[in-house]
Design a protein around this nucleic acid. Structure first.
Lengths: 128, 128
DNA sequence: CCGTATCCAAACCGATACTG
DNA sequence: CAGTATCGGTTTGGATACGG
């Protein structure tokens, strides 16, 4: 009894695969691993500074972090708060929409851990 | 009252950002727009042939479609059924884990449509 | 119809150096 | 500390052609 809390949005999701170029662009922005991992980190920790995020999201480069943060800010998923101190202190937080998205990202992360054994088995079966 | 249906998996999701290289690899495989759109299409339509998928997932190239389908098959999210006819007929279907993931992908698609206005506004505010 | 291989352009991404 | 800019290697991804 989980499904259909929301809408008659099946058609809208189909649109995502088709012609609505704005929806497609947004989806393409967000459906990449770094963006999702940043959202996860901020969701879990609440507010993080640039350097903290850099530590938290393992493996991300300085450049990719700024790039994705700008993108998330531009799309209104993340708020950037600059404290005019020396040295500078910049804090990032999820906005309302960011928090909403975080819920589904959580789902993906949990899915990964729940199926990791099945996937590993499938891979060896597959032969590579 | 939504959260914590599942597990004490907060720590596990944090691991995804950190050292578990298998989980990270799987997540990176799956967290890309083409893979997710393919899963959406298969989830909604049930079973599709190669050419049907190609039509359904608008904008994907022949090459990306095969590449992602192999990846999804290898990870056990999609089953590939070859009918030995002439001309050949190949059908793709989501497996159990694929269906489970589809639920969260639905969430992402719905999120996109629900926030499209907010995002558009945020973008113009941002100035680009 | 379905899949692979090749070629080539575009994008990605890390490393490094530099500013306030 | 946070951010931008540049460079160069690697990867991506589209177009095309060909094979089962």
């Amino acid at each position: 009894m989980v499904s259909k809390q929301f809408t008659g949005s099946e058609a809208e999701r189909a649109d995502l695969r088709r012609a609505d170029s704005l929806a497609r662009e947004i989806f393409s922005d967000i459906a990449n691993k770094w963006a999702l991992l940043i959202i996860e980190a901020l969701g879990e920790r609440g507010t993080l500074r640039f350097a903290e995020l850099h530590r938290e999201v393992q493996g991300i480069s300085h450049k990719m972090l700024t790039q994705n943060l700008r993108m998330l800010e531009r799309n209104g998923l993340v708020e950037r708060c600059v404290h005019p101190t020396v040295p500078p202190r910049v804090e990032y937080t999820l906005t309302e929409p960011g928090l909403a998205l975080r819920a589904t990202v959580d789902g993906m992360c949990d899915w990964t851990h729940r199926h990791i054994d099945h996937i590993e088995a499938s891979r060896t079966r597959f032969g590579s």
